[in-house]
């Protein structure tokens, strides 16, 4: 099945923590799989479970009040390691969108390459989403990629977000980077010939 992302209306899971690094999203000891599947169960592993593998009741992912396909987190989300396993874990756990006021570069690229949309909002709008979900855990958020906006459904408050046009087209149409570059093979060959030696 070809993956695409266009539009989503969903409740959200709020993780109101800044600088969530990829070691929190998926600790290194769970990076040993050699396929892309199954990382979701270890998403935020050490925040979700104690040393005896018992769920920690105070962590939001263990609170059944909060469900949904949108993860909302504090600024500088995804900093640290380049492990794409972080994006795989979030997607595998059922999320389709991550919202934050700031994303680390490599994480953002990895997420988009996996059709997991990163939506960067202003600090103010992020605070509004957290407030709306705190007031009503069933509050819905709408994300529209075509028109590039995110909306708090109940209040109608919305904000536009940026995404590079190439990646937007990839997400909407299910395009793939490798297919695109392979279509340029003649250019690559020409480039290689133009370099006497390769640097």
């Amino acid at each position: 099945m070809k993956k695409v992302f266009k539009h989503l209306v969903s409740t959200v899971v709020p993780v109101n923590i800044e600088n969530v690094d990829t070691d929190q999203i998926i600790p290194a000891r769970f990076l040993k799989a050699t396929t892309r599947e199954g990382f979701g169960e270890n998403l935020f592993r050490d925040w979700r479970y104690d040393a005896n593998n018992q769920p920690k009741p105070d962590f939001i992912l263990n609170d059944p009040t909060y469900q949904g396909e949108i993860l909302v987190a504090g600024k500088n989300f995804g900093c640290g390691s380049s492990r794409e396993h972080a994006a795989w874990a979030i997607a595998d756990a059922g999320f389709k969108v991550v919202v934050s006021s700031f994303f680390a570069d490599i994480f953002k690229g990895n997420a988009l390459n996996n059709f997991l949309l990163t939506v960067q909002v202003s600090e103010d709008f992020l605070a509004k989403i957290f407030a709306a979900v705190k007031a009503d855990p069933a509050a819905k958020i709408e994300v529209d990629l075509e028109s590039q906006y995110i909306k708090i459904v109940a209040s109608g408050e919305q904000e536009g977000f940026d995404i590079n046009p190439y990646k937007k087209a990839c997400l909407i149409n299910g395009y793939d980077d490798i297919d695109y570059i392979l279509s340029l093979k003649e250019d690559i060959a020409r480039y290689e010939k133009s370099r006497e030696f390769n640097f």
Binding site: I106, G109, N113, N114, I181, L182, K185
Partner: peptide
């Protein structure tokens, strides 16, 4: 610079990478 696994595949397949 560091890259994700999808990009590792991209570089293995094409010796190129898409970057802004």
């Amino acid at each position: 610079f560091g890259i994700g696994t999808s990009e590792v595949e991209e570089v293995l397949a094409t010796q190129c990478i898409l970057q802004y």
